[in-house]
Nucleic acid binder design. Structure first.
Ligand code: AMP
Ligand code: AMP
Ligand code: ZN
Ligand code: ZN
Lengths: 210, 210
DNA sequence: TATTCCGATAGTGAC
DNA sequence: GTCACTATCGGAATGAG
């Protein structure tokens, strides 16, 4: 199933996919070293949504929730930090006025999520680094949103888990947890459209270019 | 709720709504006497779909499954028979070649359903007389189809029942019974669109104007 | 808990 | 199980000398 393996090319040959930085290319790789690759998620679920892919073939197909031991985490820590800094830089660039009240640490702590999905779909191990606005046209349904806003999302600091999460239980968590605004926790039950409109309001209240 | 009472005008004043028979009027009443009115269903679920409405005010709001006693049935029997004959005549008129293998009795027995819904929505008591092709643009979802093709439909010959059917049970029957072709019993599970396409094929295999 | 397309299911409003 | 509109939920395909 080829779509599952779409991330592998970036792991094996990141140098072939390096973004030019001229703004109108669609090459995704932003950073790489011998241990990890940082790239733009092709279907970003927020204003900034990056993937950090560990490169070693021996671990790429293991479950991230158990394979991301402290030792493995250490090997990609530089890439993770690069991604977090990049996220902040993107917001500073796009919304300089709104970001004046944040410093790097405060912004990252309060507004950047780092972690993995309980049940990934893509075969190659990857870590999500994503801004918590969830303001994006690619965020299209409840599963997208709840995969980052429920226990389905396993934060970096809680890794590794002792055993891989149960798939059925994880599915129920996604399906049955009511949608809650990531800013104010307001409960939208299963009203995804209403949540989207509210997230749009929240975003424009928090960030603007003027 | 006015929509529930839409049939009442035909019960009270059938003479105001008599079809001209010139083909391009939308007046629905085809026959009436002092006991009953026969009219075209406004949203026909098959090629011919008629309603027979008993006229007495004393029984019009009672549940048809229990109020259509043998005595009441007798009073509208003429109208019922008129509707069955009309259904046959319509098919003979539209598909003379295809109908040559049928006589009136065979056609009515095999291809005309007469009965009531376990849980009617329209307030005024009415009996459905409908051809079993279910080939109509107004047949738009599973509920429409299963309301004539499951135990939700109570045939004329089984009336009256001892007590009104349980609403919840009737709803489950509609929802959970798989869709089966009324001609060949083929099972379409919950695939309504596929059933529609198959019914279209069946119809054109059984009936054509050439 | 990949995307996309399509269709089935469900809630609402109707004066 | 009135209709018509919207939105949510759900399965299937996704490849291709
Ligand atoms: N071809 C692709 N290139 C880059 N990212 C992708 C591609 N296909 C899917 N994705 C993203 O990969 C992520 C996989 O998430 P998951 O497997 O659930 O942890 C999702 O956020 C997708 O948007
Ligand atoms: N205004 C109307 N005039 C004639 N028939 C109608 C009207 N509104 C609904 N119907 C039909 O009345 C029938 C009522 O079905 P039921 O109450 O389920 O037995 C349905 O077949 C509708 O298509
Ligand atoms: Zn909010
Ligand atoms: Zn069939």
């Amino acid at each position: 199933m080829a779509w599952m393996d779409a991330l592998n090319r970036y792991r094996e040959h990141p140098e072939r996919y390096v973004a030019h930085g001229d703004g109108d290319d669609d090459l995704p790789v932003l950073y790489f070293d011998s241990d990890a690759v940082v790239l733009r998620d092709m279907f970003p679920k927020a204003t900034v949504h990056l993937l950090v892919i560990p490169r070693p073939a021996e671990i790429t197909f293991r479950h991230p929730a158990v394979a991301l031991t402290r030792e493995v985490q250490d090997t990609i820590q530089l890439a993770i930090q690069w991604a977090k800094n990049y996220t902040f830089a993107q917001f500073v660039d796009q919304f300089p006025e709104s970001l004046s009240s944040y410093d790097l640490q405060k912004f990252i702590t309060e507004f950047v999520l780092v972690g993995v999905h309980s049940v990934p779909s893509m075969s190659n191990m990857h870590v999500h680094v994503i801004s918590r606005d969830f303001h994006s046209p690619s965020l299209k349904h409840k599963k997208h949103y709840n995969s980052f806003n429920t226990a389905f999302f396993v934060p970096w600091d809680q890794l590794p888990l002792e055993s891989p999460p149960d798939k059925t239980q994880a599915e129920l968590t996604i399906k049955n947890t009511p949608l809650k605004c990531s800013y104010c926790r307001r409960d939208f039950r299963n009203k995804f459209k209403a949540l989207k409109e509210h997230l749009d309001e929240e975003f424009h209240n928090h960030f603007n270019k003027s």
